Amino acid sequence: MATMYSLFYGVLFITVLFLGGIGYRAVEREIAEVQPKSMAMGARPGPQDRMVALRKRIVDIAVGEIGVREVTGSNDGSKVEEYLAYTDLGKGHAWCAAFVSWCYSQAGHLVPRNAWSPALFPIARRYTSQQIRAGSIRPADLFAIYNQRLGRINHVGIVRKIEGNWLLTIEGNVADRVLSKRRPRATVYAFSNWLD
């Protein structure tokens, strides 16, 4: 009989430990869901935290390139040619999309990788008008400028910040250099998201 009680309490003890472990993990999940994104040092970042960090890294890389200039005004110069080379082109080509692609690659994100600005705005990557109205545009998203004469997108840049009806941008191949501009949102044709 004593063996039966020992066996019963042993099984009960193991069951309580097992169920207690499951309950603890469930509580851990609930706590993690309500904790703020900026957790104390030592905590592992979640997927959303990593995405915010990647977006910041892309913007920081682009900001670090502000001031890069073409040498002769003919889409040339060592840095400009580095941007173009990333998209398999040489000097002399328009480089706004190559610049954007290069910035993403320097942050460890291998897409987009294209020197043709319309290619950076496929329908699957574009924000809808509802998403734009809802304020979904974030830093490191891309914006497009449409050229009526060409009948297509002919310029792309990186969103640095949104300030009401204005965008603060980082763009390559504007006035023969990389610069930051303040653009009215009304002049933007499309936005795209290559990160989420």
Rank of each mutant, 00 (worst) to 15 (best):
R126M: 15
L120E: 03
G21S: 03
E28F: 04
L12Y: 03
V68K: 02
R125E: 14
G23W: 02
R160Y: 09
R126W: 11
F191A: 12
S6Y: 06
S192N: 09
Y9D: 01
V71Q: 11
G151W: 08
H109W: 14
A115Q: 12
S74G: 04
G151M: 10
S129C: 11
I137M: 06
R149P: 00
R69H: 04
P122M: 04
T3V: 03
V71L: 11
Q106K: 13
W194G: 09
Q35V: 04
E163T: 06
G10V: 00
I162Y: 01
L150V: 07
L142W: 05
F191Y: 15
I14H: 03
T72D: 04
L120I: 02
F191K: 08
R160G: 10
R152T: 15
A119W: 08
E30A: 07
K181P: 04
L142K: 07
E33I: 04
V16C: 01
N147L: 00
M1W: 01
A43D: 14
N147D: 12
I58V: 14
Q106N: 06
N173W: 13
R185L: 15
I132Q: 07
T72E: 07
Y83K: 09
W102K: 03
V16W: 00
R149T: 14
P122I: 04
V63Y: 08
E65H: 07
R133S: 14
F191D: 13
Y146C: 06
Y86F: 12
C96V: 12
D176G: 07
L7P: 00
V11F: 06
S38Y: 11
W116Y: 15
Y83W: 10
L150R: 12
G20S: 03
K37E: 13
N154H: 11
G67Y: 06
L84W: 07
A144N: 04
D60Q: 14
Y5A: 11
M51E: 14
Q131H: 08
G108W: 03
